[in-house]
Structures are given as structure tokens and as C-alpha cells.
Simulated assay, not measured.
Amino acid sequence: MNAHDPAWAQHRLLASRRREFLGAPIHALTMAETLAIADEAMTLRRPLHHVVVNVAKLVNMRNNAELHEDVATADVVNVDGIGVLWGARLCGVALPERVAGVDIMINLLSLCDTRGYRLFLLGAEQSVLDAVRMRLARDHPGLVVAGMRNGYFKPEDEAGIVEAINASGADCLLVAMPTPRKERFLKRYRDELTPSFVMGVGGSFDVYGGKVARAPKLVQAAGLEWLFRVAQEPRRLWRRYYDTNTAYAALLCRELWGRRGRRKVDL
């Protein structure tokens, strides 16, 4: 059994870079620093639970106590969304850069290949997993994929899946399921999973496997990646983004107004 290691909270870099924004913990880390911590966890075999936050997750955390707990108790919390990066900076929270979950995953694949870490992939459709396997064989022929399992399973199947993950000897577990399902799964089995680095990657398998196109870098830099996604699946996504973006704008306005009021009191 791989019990949770509370010592990560005292890790020099993580302790010095922990911030808070809209009631959520975040770490002011670069991509290189994030990968170095993942490498450290897998080298030392110290269990580390990683999550990312974007606008939708920040909004949903306000109304979902379980999701808030799942994120707040993770060891590393990166800023995925450009909207969170800009909003935090606007509120005076210094962050070095956006560290997107899909980019972390792609870099982790290279890290695991180079360092000989074993990988387990959980989630997405079986056809997507098959496409991911084929691309990995091209991109990283030396990478050891210890196991794969699609994300279509019932709650009663979870114990067996955890057993299969542990039996695989994987060092790194990537979970491609939607929020809050992936966060709940990783929190629920945190003390049982033996991979040293576990991370929820959402729809990143869909991107890597070619099912979903990622926005061009200029669109990402402009903060319009969400609009690119809506254009691909308008019926499914337009209301979700409308609701979360407007809710986030309201939260941000209240936060800025509150900070303005506190500054006046201090004067």
C-alpha cells in the first residue's frame, strides 16, 4: 500500500510557492519545476497527487464541497487555464506561467521514456486508448506502458481496477476522466494506489490520440482556447462555457471589489 506522504506540504519549493486564489490553493510553478517535482516523486517513490485548475473547476469548487476537498488536499495544484492565470495576476497573485494539463502530460511521456518510468493510462474511450497506444509507439518506442484501461466502468469495478494498476508496477498513473469523476476517484483511492505520481488529465488522451484538435498556439495565447473548443462541439459545450465564464467573471469582480475595499480600510 502506498500511503499518502504529507511531507510534500513541507517541500521547500512547494511550501514557498503555495498561493490562494478565489478560495482555492495553487502553486506558482513553471513547467520545468513541475516536471522536476514529478521526477523527484518517481525517483524516490514518494506518492504525490497532482491536479490542475481551470476556470470551470474553480467555479464548480465553490458549489461542490467534495470537489473542493479533492483539489485542496492534492500535493501539487497547477494553473491550467489562461483565465485563471490572468485573473490571479489581476488580483495580485504572482504566477510565472500557465502550466496546462495536456502539456504536463506530453512532457511526462518524454520524462517516463527517458527515465525508464512505467506508465499506466486510465480513461477515455477504447478507440481513443488504441490511438494513444499507436502514437506512443511512434513517439516513444522505448516507453514502457504497464497497462491501459478505458474509462467506461461501474463503481463496483473500481476495486479491481485499482488492483490491476498496482499489479502493473506503474510509476506514473494518468487518469483521463471528466471533472469531478477523476478527482473523486484519485482522492478515494489515494492511500491504496501504488504509482508514485498520479494525475488527472481530463480530455488529454482525446487530444493526443487525435480525436479532438487542440487550438493553435496563437489562439491559446489570446485566451480563446475555450472558444475553439466550442466551435468544435457547439451543441455540447456552448452552455457549459457560457455558465462557467459568466460565473467566473462575477467571482472575479467581487474579489477585485473586495480587495479594493480592504485597501481603503488599510489606508
Rank of each mutant, 00 (worst) to 15 (best):
L237T: 04
A41Q: 06
H68K: 12
R235W: 12
R259M: 10
D70V: 00
A213W: 01
Y208G: 06
V77N: 00
E66K: 12
L121T: 02
R214V: 06
V128M: 11
F185G: 05
V93K: 08
G123C: 03
H140Y: 13
M42Y: 00
A32I: 07
V145I: 14
R229C: 01
M1R: 08
P96Q: 06
T30G: 13
R17L: 08
L224M: 13
D157F: 08
N2F: 06
W257F: 10
V93G: 08
L251S: 06
V77Y: 01
S168D: 09
R45D: 14
Y242I: 05
M1F: 07
V144C: 14
M148W: 09
L256V: 13
T194Y: 04
D39M: 00
E40H: 08
N64K: 07
D113K: 10
V198H: 05
K264G: 05
A146Y: 09
R45L: 07
L227M: 08
M1P: 10
L267M: 06
L14G: 00
C253I: 10
G23K: 01
A124R: 02
A164E: 15
Q126P: 04
V53S: 11
R188S: 05
Y248T: 10
E33R: 03
A124Y: 02
Y241R: 10
P141Y: 06
R18S: 15
M105A: 14
R115K: 15
R262M: 12
L13S: 07
R263A: 15
L122I: 05
R17E: 13
V175P: 03
A164C: 07
R18V: 12
F205P: 03
T43H: 11
N150K: 02
V77K: 12
R263L: 14
R138A: 12
E69K: 07
H68A: 15
R12S: 15
W226Q: 06
A28G: 14
S127T: 01
L122R: 09
L173N: 10
D5V: 08
G209I: 02
N2D: 12
V79T: 04
A167F: 05
R45E: 12
Y248S: 10
V51T: 13
S110P: 03
L256T: 06
G169R: 08
E158Y: 03
A124Q: 04
N2Y: 07
L85F: 15
V59T: 09
F185M: 10
A32P: 09
A170V: 11
L237N: 02
I165Y: 03
A159C: 01
V219T: 07
